[in-house]
Amino acid sequence: MSKKKETVAVHNMSKAQWTWHLMKQYKVGYFMTIPFMILFFAFTVIPVFASVFVAFTDWNLLQTPNFVGFQNFITLFLNDDLFIIALKNTILFAVVVGPGSYIMSFVIAWFINELDPKVRAFVTLVFYAPSLTGSAYTIFQYIFSSDAYGLVNGWLMNFGLIDAPIRWFQTEQYIFPLCIIISLWMSLNTGFLASIAGLQGVDRAQYEAAAVDGITNRWQELWYVTLPNMKETLMFSAVLSITGAFGFGGIVTSMAGDPPTGYVGYTLTHHLGEYSGARMEFGYASAISFVLFLIQIGANMAINRALSKVGK
């Protein structure tokens, strides 16, 4: 009897009342999420969305901000040569390192997929180890050390290929390729582990069915069976690859300095650091981060579109 009454009551509720009813019924859900959400909003959501507004002001933390319209963006694109350099470098790095690391982590995961589990665990460690510590790239300062005791210089001189040691990270033409090599070396991270797990999760029966259906080689199998079966994993690791490809400045800074020689490898991360940390020009810095934000959203939309074509 009472149950019937309740159903009637539900029918008579407006949408807002019904939502309120659910909110009360599941209020424990809010208690459980709110501690995390407060911090998540404070340190991620609010900073990202507020930067959209701050980008249109001249805020410097000390004085009341004035609304300046598109002035920051006009300065960025027309009067700030360093910004253009940083933008070009950032996009170039991302275009090479993003797809590069993504393809590398998938291909290696695919290669090791059929190994014996114990061997696979070991090989996984070998490939994953470089990304385990953020500081492992300091090794390359000794491999590409600027004197004859550096590994590369020493051997190149020994073979008579060069006469004098090359100052790798102070020479404009080497900074860019070296930083790309180092970041690719370190790029087999969480997305790589996800690919390994994703490949393991593809049902074996599907491969057998595909063989009976006339798939003749491993490439066809990859394209028609494996990839369509792990689209969600592909999306997850693509997202991580993109984020990684844009969070790049750290390697350049520690290998070549900030700013690096001739501003080769100078990225938006460096430019952001210059205007927020050093000059406290938060309006201008917000405009830079807003541009970075738009680029990343665009990259994610592009990869989403590309992945929808997989297996077709």
């Binding site: 999420t33 959400m37 998540f40 404070a42 340190f43 991620t44 959501v45 609010i46 900073p47 990202v48 507020a50 930067s51 701050v54 933390l61 997202v239 991580l240 993109i242 984020t243 990684g244 844009f246 969070g247 400045g249 938006l268 991360t269 952001l272 927020s276 940390g277 938060f282 810095a285 917000s286 830079i288 981060s289 970075l292 934000f293 990343q296 959203i297 994610n300």
Partner: peptide, 25 residues
């Protein structure tokens, strides 16, 4: 809430970093 969390994975920490610095200060 979950969509917000998924979207946050898509942007690098540098984007939020500028004003996060202000908030923490």
């Amino acid at each position: 809430f979950f969509q917000l969390i998924v979207k946050s994975l898509m942007i690098s920490s540098a984007v939020a970093g500028t004003l996060q610095f202000v908030i923490l200060t």
